[in-house]
């Protein structure tokens, strides 16, 4: 019985070998990079102040927190309810304001329809709105207008302009130029040209972005609350501060549920848009 390794009759083993070619061909470079990564990992380890005693003490503490968090405590549900309601209101108002502003900013920041000076101004607004994380923006607004939902609304509005404004401007830059020319040819001015030649082409995109942004603002409203900008995030951070871990756990469950529901709803609606 011949084994599977035997070559076909009449053909001696050729002795040819095959190996997968190395991703980096130059052996010096290859081994040099591996050595460098190992050296860096060792240096980083010796540099990091890892205190194993503290890790050891932390584990049972974490276990204690999780223990006290169980079962979640929904006794103060009125507080939970008003926090969630405030978050939803913040998210909706901010989306409305943010989308309205985004439309103006996007028209300014679309290279194909805006004059050069306006274009750079519009781009600058978008870059500014995008460059800072909502938590940092929230800290600034809390300093400026005080604790509460107003700071949250302003933060989420800025956040919305950064996202919706940028993507809507890109959608405007991709419109069919022919339709625009047809409207310009009728003698329509800039505003009427945008109304007929631009908006109908980007409207489905605008609706889709608005729904996505509502969902996104709801998520962010929980986070900016931790910086003191109102909503369920506020309730959560004060629960943590008072070591009410069981209440905090209840809040977390509600936030997760809220986001799951909003994501499912926005996904359903967006999949039906054309």
């Amino acid at each position: 019985m011949s084994s599977a390794a035997t070559p076909p009759v009449g053909r001696p083993p050729s002795g040819r070998l095959w190996h997968k070619p190395a991703a980096i061909k130059n052996p010096w470079l290859r081994w040099g990079l591996i050595a460098a990564v190992v050296a860096y990992a060792y240096w980083a380890y010796t540099f990091m102040p890892i205190n194993w005693d503290r890790v050891a003490a932390g584990l049972p503490r974490a276990a204690r927190i999780i223990n006290t968090a169980f079962p979640p405590d929904f006794a103060r549900w009125q507080l939970l309810y008003s926090g969630v309601l405030e978050s939803i209101q913040m998210a909706l108002v901010a989306t409305l304001l943010g989308v309205a502003l985004s439309v103006v900013v996007a028209v300014m920041a679309a290279r194909n329809i805006a004059p050069v000076v306006i274009y750079w101004f519009g781009r600058a607004i978008i870059v500014l709105a995008r460059s800072l994380h909502p938590v940092i923006v929230a800290i600034i607004f809390v300093k400026a207008v005080g604790f509460g939902p107003l700071a949250g609304i302003l933060t989420l509005t800025v956040y919305s302009v950064g996202f919706v404004g940028k993507l809507l401007a890109e959608a405007i830059e991709e419109i069919d130029r022919g339709q625009l020319e047809a409207i310009v040819s009728t003698g329509a001015g800039f505003a009427k040209t945008v109304l007929y030649g631009v908006f109908p082409q980007v409207l489905p995109r605008l609706v889709g972005l608005s729904i996505y942004q509502t969902d996104s603002n709801l998520r962010a409203s929980a986070i900016v609350g931790i910086a003191g900008a109102g909503g369920i995030g506020n309730t959560l951070s004060s629960a943590f501060r008072r070591f009410d871990y069981d209440f905090a756990f209840a809040i977390l469950l509600v936030i997760i549920g809220l986001i799951l529901v909003s994501e499912a709803v926005s996904g359903r609606i967006r999949s039906r848009l054309t």
Binding site: G178, Q179, E181, A182, T186, Y196, P200
Partner: peptide
């Protein structure tokens, strides 16, 4: 002006497209 590729506003109705001739 009449165009080779028609250049109607796709998402608007026929009536809106015709009336757009009055935008000036």
């Amino acid at each position: 002006m009449i165009f080779q590729s028609f250049n109607l506003i796709d998402r608007l109705t026929v009536m809106e497209n015709v009336l757009s001739g009055r935008l000036g």
